[in-house]
Design a protein around this nucleic acid. Sequence first.
DNA 1: CCGGATCCGTTTCGATACTG
DNA 2: CAGTATCGAAACGGATCCGG
Lengths: 152, 152
Amino acid sequence: MTRPRPNRRSGCPVSVSLEILGDRWSLLIVRDMMVRAFRTFKQFQGSGEAIATNILADRLRKLEAAGIIVRERNPSDSRSIAYRLTQKGIDLAPVLLELLIWGARHEETDAACAAIDVMAQNRAAILDEVRRRWQQGDPNALQVDGEWRLPF
Amino acid sequence: MTRPRPNRRSGCPVSVSLEILGDRWSLLIVRDMMVRAFRTFKQFQGSGEAIATNILADRLRKLEAAGIIVRERNPSDSRSIAYRLTQKGIDLAPVLLELLIWGARHEETDAACAAIDVMAQNRAAILDEVRRRWQQGDPNALQVDGEWRLPF
DNA sequence: CCGGATCCGTTTCGATACTG
DNA sequence: CAGTATCGAAACGGATCCGG
């Protein structure tokens, strides 16, 4: 006899957004897809943050249910499954960018201060590049010569 | 015999930010302070989202430990305790604004679509107003004639 | 192998009752 | 008013197992 957990939240946008994204992993998965071009279960597993496989599976399901990602099976190789961001998912880029700038400014992170200032002053250009890469249908990671261009 | 929960996270800014803010309540508390000018424990309790008192106490402690808010005791009335955003907390305004715009665009919320378009095109002005109100030391809620000016 | 599902111990959450 | 105390429910983390 398990009662469903009550969810007495207001309909304010921030509240509704946090209902989906308000945990430690969901936005991180979206970031990995967006700027590192991760597409498979395996890639997320080894992303350096060591998410448990059951949690990862759960989050991928929830993100799919929320319409943020889609799950696709490779027709030629049925073993291979790939996840892809939807437009709704790509639209999280501004949230991630602001979170990045805030963290880099106020927390101890690996990002160089100078790089952050540059990013903060070029928000629009960065977001344009992310959108362009994804709408071309070939979302390469935001890296140049094997190095992350941005310290996401 | 309680082992501390392992926290094997990268030092990337987004990851570090989510370590502090990656739950369903922290950002909501910051929003209530920022746009509704909530300052007391009691106000947060009745914010319409029905946070449990022990969770609220825990989040306020964690936000204080992270330097996002400060806890102040009224010298004249020692029973009265007020919380206030620090600069680090005010700097979360862009994150909240992007989260608001995303939620309003893509989720069922109480916010009118037209209002969101206006906000999305006036990000800078909105953030300026938030900062100005807070730096005056008298952070009034973002409301006019008792109505919320913005559908946060 | 890949993409999970299952099991189990630990941690956190949520609701309510209670207190200085 | 501003929180604790308590306790059952849910989420998490690690390890292992499994089907294609």
